[in-house]
């Protein structure tokens, strides 16, 4: 087993708020408030993180190497220079993917046992 694989497994499973945070950063750098908004929007308000919870997650994800603070700034017209932007690292991407695969296998198992209906073909 490679050291990469070991480090990914070591960080699993993720808590739902951590997974949401990593997924929110998957399509680009964001500051804290944008992460909150993204999570709230994508879950139709079902997941509402507080500022304390979010920055505790950010701190832990940064310490584990899942995200980094980036110096790159967006368009100055859209930028608020007091904000700090965060970026998903390659490790963070692999960990999020591994967690989603883990959840997917559980969902597949539940489908096989007819606990939830099979997905209708698109």
């Amino acid at each position: 087993m490679s050291s990469h694989r070991r480090s990914v497994d070591h960080l699993l499973p993720l808590t739902p708020p951590m997974l949401h945070t990593l997924v929110a950063l998957a399509d680009g750098d964001k500051h804290g408030y944008a992460i909150l908004k993204e999570i709230s929007r994508r879950t139709d308000g079902a997941v509402l993180l507080s500022a304390g919870t979010l920055y505790a997650l950010v701190r832990r994800a940064t310490a584990d190497g899942l995200i980094v603070e980036t110096d790159e700034r967006p368009d100055p017209a859209l930028d608020d220079e007091r904000r700090r932007y965060y970026r998903l690292t390659s490790l963070g991407r692999r960990v999020a993917a591994a967690e989603l695969a883990r959840l997917e296998s559980i969902v597949d198992m539940a489908r096989a046992k007819k606990l939830i209906p099979r997905r209708s073909p698109a």
Partner: peptide, 24 residues
């Protein structure tokens, strides 16, 4: 309320947390 958090935590995130809370 943020004073309940550790000093290091506040040093790193207090301004952003206050900013985020203000926006919320």
């Amino acid at each position: 309320l943020l004073r309940a958090f550790p000093f290091d935590f506040r040093t790193d995130h207090e301004r952003e947390m206050a900013q985020t809370f203000r926006a919320q």
